[in-house]
Computed example of a mutant assay.
Amino acid sequence: MRHATTNGDARVWHVSDDLAARYAEGVLPEPEAWSLEKHVEGCGGCAATVSEAVRGTAAGPVLAEIRDAVLASLPAPAPAPAAPAARRPRRRVPHRFARLLWAAGPAVRGAWLPAVLVVAAGALALAYGTGYPGVRALLLAVAPVVPVAGVALSYGPHADPLHEVAAATPGGGLRLALTRTVAVLAVSLPLLTLTGLLLPASGAPAAAAWLLPGLALALGSLALASFVGCRTAALLTGGGWLLAVLGPVPAASSGGAAGARLAEQLSRCLDGVGAQSAWASAAVLSAVLVTARRPVYDRPLGR
């Protein structure tokens, strides 16, 4: 159990030896493990207690060997140049912010965010630069696949060299997968919806009509990934959506006719209480399946 010390009116808890031992053995309940990890971020004494407990387990010698190998592979640090007398000290970026960037995944780093911006800018350029009809319908057809692709690129060995290690920690597994899914949705949903609002309607559904389908497909992809892997799941869900909306549009149609046909097909898939209710139900069922398959996410999902 935790033990507490009193400092004036503040009551601060610290990690006991028993709590550290249960954490090191991997038998500590997940909520308590998260609380412990949060505490040791700012408490050096408790961090040392937990580190000593981990070193006493069977994994301790292995971790020590890995640490020694990593340190041995690092180049020797270059001597720091003498700082001028009037030089102001640099402000260090908080380590928590760095961890947040890593956890958020492709929504804030890598090539995924620029790709989303290119889709939005390309739609606006196509509508107002060339006058191509039916650009909103085309954007609504592509938009639900964007978060699916982000989820596929955000979790698995192909996304993180240390995926196996991260998945085995209390902060990894499903928690990390959901963190990255939320980051992907937080970037793509408002950006592409705003882009849709700026495009001419041309008979297409409302700019926000794709939000529930995008959420349902992202959660469905995450749920399916527990069976077939992230990339295969994304191909199945994203490819199925594109086939459903683009398949009925004849390839030989002119620009105006193809845009009208696509808008008509999207209206069947997106417009109306029935269609939106079906997408909401699909999102809920996917979330339930993700919860039921929770232990699977502690293993690599990169197939």
Rank of each mutant, 00 (worst) to 15 (best):
R2N: 08
N7D: 12
N7E: 08
D9R: 05
A10K: 11
V12N: 08
A21L: 11
A21I: 04
A21S: 12
A24F: 05
E25I: 06
G26D: 04
L28I: 06
P31R: 06
K38W: 01
E41Y: 06
G45C: 07
A47F: 03
S51P: 00
R55T: 14
T57F: 13
A58S: 13
A59V: 14
P61Y: 10
E65L: 09
E65A: 14
D68V: 14
D68W: 13
A69E: 12
A69M: 11
A69S: 12
V70F: 13
A72G: 12
S73F: 08
L74M: 14
L74Q: 13
P79I: 12
P81D: 03
A82T: 15
A82W: 07
P84G: 05
A86G: 05
R87E: 15
R92T: 14
V93L: 13
F97S: 02
W102P: 15
A107T: 01
A107S: 06
R109G: 13
G110K: 11
W112E: 04
A115M: 09
A115K: 06
V119L: 04
A121K: 00
G122S: 05
Y128G: 05
G131F: 10
V135E: 08
A137K: 05
A141G: 09
V145Q: 01
A149H: 08
A149R: 07
G150A: 05
A152I: 03
A152R: 05
P157F: 02
P157K: 04
H158Q: 08
H158S: 08
D160M: 07
L162N: 11
A166N: 07
A167V: 02
A168S: 13
A168G: 14
G171H: 12
G172T: 11
G173K: 13
G173Y: 12
L176R: 11
T179H: 01
R180D: 04
R180C: 07
R180F: 01
A183E: 02
L189P: 12
P190C: 07
L197G: 12
L197M: 09
L199N: 01
L199H: 01
L199G: 01
P200Q: 01
A201F: 02
P205S: 11
A206R: 14
A207K: 04
L217G: 05
L217Y: 00
A223P: 14
L224K: 03
L224Y: 06
G229R: 07
R231H: 09
T232V: 15
A233V: 03
L236S: 01
T237F: 02
G238C: 05
W241H: 03
G247T: 02
P248I: 04
G255M: 14
G256S: 15
A257T: 08
A257K: 11
L262M: 09
A263M: 08
E264T: 06
Q265T: 08
R268I: 10
D271N: 08
G272R: 00
Q276D: 04
S277T: 00
S277L: 08
A278G: 10
W279I: 03
S281C: 10
V284L: 15
V288E: 02
V296S: 11
G302R: 09
G302C: 09
R303Q: 10
